[in-house]
Design a protein around this nucleic acid. Structure first.
Ligand SMILES: [Zn+2]
Ligand SMILES: [Zn+2]
Ligand SMILES: [Zn+2]
Ligand SMILES: [Zn+2]
Lengths: 142, 142
DNA sequence: CTTGAACCTCTATCAGCTGTAGCTTGTATC
DNA sequence: GATACAAGCTACAGCTGATAGAGGTTCAAG
């Protein structure tokens, strides 16, 4: 039987994060000692490792929930798991595209500024006026 | 004098977002009518446009705050603005790298699954076991 | 003067955790 | 068996960057 700290070390997950996963129903409710401390077995360890690895690959907790549900009954077809992964791949590709557009603009504005006064700063000029941009980047942020 | 809805339409910013920017001190406190409604001028419009464009390029609100402060006194050197932009560029490049590693892994696992039962699903197999991965992807998520 | 779209404040919610305060439990050592 | 203290517990606040809704007020056109 493993204490939460051991699980934490073995999976690289913060203790609070493990408790959080339990709270939102991603991890099963852990068994408890008489004094109320959580105790885990190897199955819990595997499940947490699955969750963490999926997170590292960028899956949302909702997707992970679905994947865990699927993994729990091995008889059925895996087409749904595959389509979740494909969807994830699509999103990653989209984000890469967007970030590459941002990168282009940022590189250009950084390169074109000669480091004079703020009044003539190319960086600030571009930020003030999107028509200085070469790409469309409608959506916000990341 | 512009009402908040006009500002919203002219900059593509939700009304609530404009109020939020005021709340966190990114936009100045707007003047008010006798009845308490916010009114803006062209300067406010420019400032909001600057903020939105910077957001589209992925700058954090904190960075934008710094950039706005710098832009407000045009006499000084722009080296700080430039370094904020370079930092942003560096972060974007980092994220692209990470996402490309994720993309590789995701493509591989999707490609290698022949769509059989969950028990033999390559996707789930990889998620269970990082040693199936070719790249290190320690950090989480995006 | 009436209507109704647009405005107001306040509060709650989202993802995915992370951190803190203040207390209790488990275990190793003597 | 006593004691020390690391590690556990709950509960709640906070982070980023907004977004949504309830319930009430104001502005401007006709
Ligand atoms: Zn510059
Ligand atoms: Zn632009
Ligand atoms: Zn499969
Ligand atoms: Zn991996």
């Amino acid at each position: 039987m493993l204490a939460i700290g051991t699980l934490s070390r073995r999976t690289g997950t913060k203790v609070q994060t493990i408790r959080y996963y339990e709270e939102i129903g991603l991890m099963n409710e852990a068994g408890r000692t008489a004094g109320g401390q959580r105790r885990y077995d190897e199955k819990d360890l595997d499940r947490l490792a699955f969750i963490r690895h999926s997170r590292q690959l960028g899956f949302s907790l909702d997707s992970i929930r679905e994947l865990l549900d699927l993994a729990d009954n091995p008889a059925q077809s895996c087409s749904e798991a595959d389509s979740i992964a494909r969807r994830q791949l699509g999103q990653v590709e989209q984000r890469i595209k967007r970030l590459q557009a941002l990168k282009k603009e940022l590189r250009r504005m950084v390169a074109e500024c000669d480091g004079d006064s703020v009044a003539e700063c190319k960086v600030l000029e571009v930020l003030r006026d999107h028509s200085e941009c070469l790409t469309e980047h409608n959506e916000i942020g990341a």
